[in-house]
């Protein structure tokens, strides 16, 4: 079994780039806490499992590109976008 690192590395980097712009905004009227993002992560794992891996990639049963992007978005949000956008 060969693990395909391409989607994992670049999905994570792409996710970091996107996640760095997701900031809590007081004007929006809703406040997403850390617990909200944990729920999004759990839903995302189920999502990735239902999507399945790309064709010819026989390493895992869940979509590594989707999961790496989700982890990247959440990590980027907590590392680079901790403040509010206003």
């Amino acid at each position: 079994m060969i693990l395909n690192f391409g989607p994992i590395i670049f999905g994570f980097i792409f996710g970091l780039i996107l996640g760095s712009q997701v900031k809590n905004n007081p004007i929006s009227g809703v406040n997403f806490t850390t617990g909200s993002y944990v729920v999004i992560l759990i839903v995302g794992i189920i999502f990735a499992w239902l999507l399945g891996q790309f064709p010819y990639y026989n390493d895992t049963t869940l979509s590594t590109a989707f999961l790496a992007a989700l982890i990247g978005v959440l990590l980027g949000k907590f590392l680079f976008a901790r403040g509010s956008s206003n």
Binding site: F47, A69, L70, V73
Partner: peptide, 18 residues
């Protein structure tokens, strides 16, 4: 809104990488 936007981001990244 935000949860769906985040999942759309991930779907988009998956589409690009595949």
């Amino acid at each position: 809104g935000v949860p769906i936007a985040i999942l759309l981001f991930c779907l988009g990244v998956m589409t690009i990488l595949g």
